[in-house]
């Protein structure tokens, strides 16, 4: 039985000047999906993810969140988006960045409570309690009063995940969350993400960790040249790819797996 998708993407295009990065993407995301997006650099996978919370404004196409299509249609032109509308969408979509982007002038706790207090208008006591709850989930309860500069990369990324989760998003976006980490720190972050996926939270994850995609995702998307080349369950896309581009991509990556 299929229910209403929580996210629908239709005919998504994005250009930066003459550079046509996304060339028509269609995708339905169901509640509880964990979708891994693979592709070489320049394939448009990060741009695609960043369009979903409007960090990038789509050049064309429509994105529907929980039954509501974002933006206002204009005949013959791309949709227009109001700042208020996008601000509301972003509150329901958590994002984790490759470079963490913690606020360096705020403590770990302050990073997490910022959105709760300023955006959601919660009082200090309940924001703090909520933030500590999320910090405990990512295993950093004792770091609440530290500043980000005193944390390792893996710890920073776990705080960034807690910051996004604290706002109780309906959808989580991970943009290469382990690519900026030293190899020995990748595991702790992947474990946290796996824990969130196991709770059944809907998420899209741009990653180079093919093994992680295989074990955690329920759907895998392979992108090249700004479109989805192949999409399906991980066993199919990763073990028995049909598209020659997917096959070539996976062959390149397998050289490094021992």
């Amino acid at each position: 039985m299929s229910q209403e998708p929580i996210l629908t993407i239709r005919g998504l295009h994005k250009s930066f000047g003459d550079n046509h990065v996304l060339r028509g993407i269609d995708l339905d995301v169901q509640q509880g999906d964990c979708i891994a997006i693979l592709g070489a650099s320049g394939s448009g996978k990060s741009t695609f993810l960043r369009c979903l919370n409007f960090m990038e404004i789509p050049s064309d196409g429509a994105i529907t969140h929980a039954g509501k299509t974002i933006g206002t249609e204009r005949p013959g032109k791309p949709r227009v988006y109001s700042e208020d509308e996008l601000t509301k969408v972003r509150q329901k979509v958590g994002m984790v960045f490759q470079q963490f982007n913690l606020f360096p002038h705020k403590t770990v706790l302050g990073n997490i409570t910022e959105g709760l207090r300023i955006v959601q208008g919660k009082d200090k006591a309940s924001s703090d309690a909520r933030a500590r709850e999320e910090l405990a989930r990512v295993g950093l309860a004792e770091k609440a009063d530290e500043y980000p500069s005193r944390l390792s990369g893996g710890q920073k990324q776990r705080v960034a995940i807690a910051r996004a989760l604290a706002l109780a998003p309906e959808l989580m976006l991970f943009d290469e969350p382990t690519s900026a980490l030293d190899p020995e720190l990748v595991g702790e972050v992947l474990n946290v993400i796996r824990g969130i996926a196991d709770e059944g939270r809907t998420m899209l994850l741009v990653t180079h960790e093919i093994g992680f995609a295989y074990h955690v995702a329920n759907r895998v998307i392979f992108m090249a040249d700004g479109i989805i080349q192949e999409e399906g369950p991980p066993e199919q896309v990763l073990k028995n790819p049909q598209n020659p581009l997917t096959q070539a991509f996976l062959a390149r990556h397998k050289q490094f797996e021992f």
Partner: peptide
């Protein structure tokens, strides 16, 4: 850094809020 703006907007802040709470305190320093 642009990432600071993005992080602020990703948690739903509007531009003036991001400027006041996230960007300016770091800039002033």
């Amino acid at each position: 850094e642009r990432g600071q703006w993005e992080a602020a907007r990703a948690i739903g802040m509007q531009r003036p809020q991001a400027m006041r709470r996230i960007i300016l305190p770091q800039a002033v320093k």
